[in-house]
Every structure is written in C-alpha cells, then in structure tokens.
C-alpha cells in the first residue's frame, strides 16, 4: 500500500511542467491586453491631433500647410506640427518659436529653435506601442545633441495616382513620388471645401510607429521626418526636393522594406505602418480614427489619401 502523501520525482516534474505550460498560455494573453491598452492610447493621440487640426481649420478657413519653406524660398521651413501647437495647448512653445529664420524647422541651422525644443516632450506625438527613438538629431548621431522629438504620426499629402502627383525629381522615378492631392500639402494649404470626397472619406494623419528593415535585416527609422524632428519642413531650392513630416501614399499598409521606391533617407513615400498586428491607424478629416487593415486594396488606400478623386469609399470598417 502506497503512502498517499509522498510524491515521486516523475509526478513532481509533470506537475512543474503543467504549471509551466499554464503560465506560458497566460503570458501572451497578458501581453495582448497591455498592447491593446497602448493601442488605445495611440489612437487617442490621433483624436487629439484631429481636434487641433479641425480647430485650426475653423479659425483659418484652411488646414495648416503640411510643410513650409522660409519666406525667401531658399531655406528649410517648418511643418504642420508647429502650426497646430497653439490648438493643442502648446501656445508657450509656439509663441517662442522663431518663424522667420532662416531656416526655421531645420534645427541644425537655428540655435534658438533648437534650444527651445531640446528635450521638449509632446505626449500626443508618441504612440506608446512604438520602440522607435523619441529624440532625434541626438546621439548615436555623431554630430548632433539637439534631442528634438520625432512624431509617430505623419501628414498625408495625397496619393501617387492624383493628377498633381509627379516624380520627386523629374525623369528619375527612383527618387519616389510627390503628390498634393491630400489635405496636408507642401508649400500650400488645402481647405475643407476642397475635400469633395467628404471629410469622412479622406485621411489626414497616419501612423508610423515601427522600424523598417533593409536587405541585411538591419533596422532603420522610416518615419517621414527621417531623424530631423517633428518641426522639419520643406525647401524648394533643395537639390533633392525633400519634404518632411508628410507622406505621399505609394505603398501598401505595413510595407516595411527600407529600399522600396520612395522609402529611405529623407524619402517622400515613407509607409503607413505600425507595430500593431495586421494594420495601422489613420485619422480622417472628420476627426474619426480608424484601424486600416493591411489587406486594404491599394486603390482604396489611394482613394482615401486623395481629397477630390471622386471615389467615395463605402463600407471599409
């Protein structure tokens, strides 16, 4: 007759194994719950940005310019993020921001603005799910110690199939495409009235919260400011016609290939992508935020990026 209180070694090992399996089953569920909370915060930030954009629109009659050059047209200006600061409770920063320059948004050439924005944290620019760097123009970069915030969201300046779209450098398709068919366009402003597809059918700000990978698997920051900060704008006299903090939609959602056309250093078609599985979030001009699946047809995505293509997207969500 066996003593019921004693355990054999095999029994103990089995019990430990079962407990281990149970924990292994539980852990992903806990992680998923935490990611769901982060994703909610991420979409909340977009909603806040949407409120600011709409407040800007109602006081100016137009949406802010996506990226500006300086008044002399020869230097780097600043982005739409700077323009909406007063509408998102950041008046103090906005009032001190030097909008004359030149340059203004290029902090490598404007010490006043660099000092003003150094280590200034704007929670509404940060998607908590992201592992991308919060501060850019900072170490490990060899020559900068500006520590300016880099946003996890970018403006939509249109899609590659809009009539205004063209190769960034004429006759050189390898440099990507630039469009002014959206609502946050470079060198100009679009009004709500121009969004003839309807405010609820036009994306205005989209998510960029993950890393891109090159052919060797190395990670690269493929946000639209490519490590120049949320304030960086545009400059028509630039020989490469670079535009920052807005993107022209060319790729599918969650295309993360560094080296695809228009994705790369200071490139115009940085992708809509996220760390959330299966898609990315987008703010629409009516202030709503939707999760766009990466299975969305590419033409549908273009239609959402263009404000006036006449294609109204029906039931997507």
């Amino acid at each position: 007759m066996r003593d019921r209180r004693a355990f054999t070694l095999v029994e103990l090992l089995v019990v430990i194994a079962i407990i281990g399996i149970l924990i292994a089953l539980l852990l992903p569920a806990v992680q998923a719950a935490r990611e769901a909370a982060r994703r909610l915060q991420c979409s909340n930030n977009l909603k806040q940005v949407g409120l600011a954009l709409l407040s800007y629109e109602s006081s100016h009659g137009v949406f802010p310019p996506g990226a500006l050059e300086t008044a002399d047209g020869l230097h780097w200006g600043h982005s739409w993020w700077v323009r909406i600061l007063p509408y998102i409770e950041q008046n103090t920063i906005y009032d001190q921001f030097d909008q004359e320059g030149p340059p203004t948004g290029w902090l490598g050439g404007n010490d006043h603005n660099a000092d003003l924005l150094r280590k200034k944290y704007f929670p509404f620019m940060r998607c908590p799910s992201s592992t991308l760097r919060q501060w850019v123009m900072a170490p490990p970069h060899p020559s900068w110690d500006v520590y300016v915030m880099s946003a996890n969201y970018t403006g939509v300046s249109g899609a590659t199939d809009h009539p205004t779209a063209h190769d960034r450098l004429d006759g050189q398709p390898e440099y990507g495409r630039v469009s002014s068919g959206g609502l946050l366009i470079a060198y100009g402003s679009a009004s709500a009235a121009q969004a003839t597809d309807g405010m609820s059918n036009t994306m205005i700000v989209v998510e960029q919260s993950d890393w891109c990978k090159d052919t060797s698997g190395e990670k690269f920051d493929c946000r639209s400011d490519t490590r120049h900060g949320f304030c960086m704008g545009a400059n028509r006299s630039d020989s490469l016609k670079r535009v920052f903090n807005v993107t022209t939609v060319l790729h599918r959602i969650n295309e993360k290939s560094w080296g695809a056309v228009g994705i790369g250093s200071c490139a115009p078609n940085q992708p809509i992508q996220s760390v959330h599985p299966g898609g990315a979030q987008a703010l629409f001009a009516d202030g709503s935020v939707h999760f766009l699946s990466e299975m969305v047809e590419i033409q549908t995505l273009y239609n959402l990026a263009n404000r006036d293509d006449g294609n109204v997207v029906g039931d997507l969500w």
Partner: peptide, 13 residues
C-alpha cells in the same frame, strides 16, 4: 526597380 501597380509593390534591388 520592380513595379506592380495593382498590388502597390514598388521595390528596388
């Protein structure tokens, strides 16, 4: 450069 406009794939090598 490889382009497929239907799929929206524009890849370089």
């Amino acid at each position: 450069i490889f382009s497929n406009t239907d799929k929206g794939v524009y890849m370089t090598a």
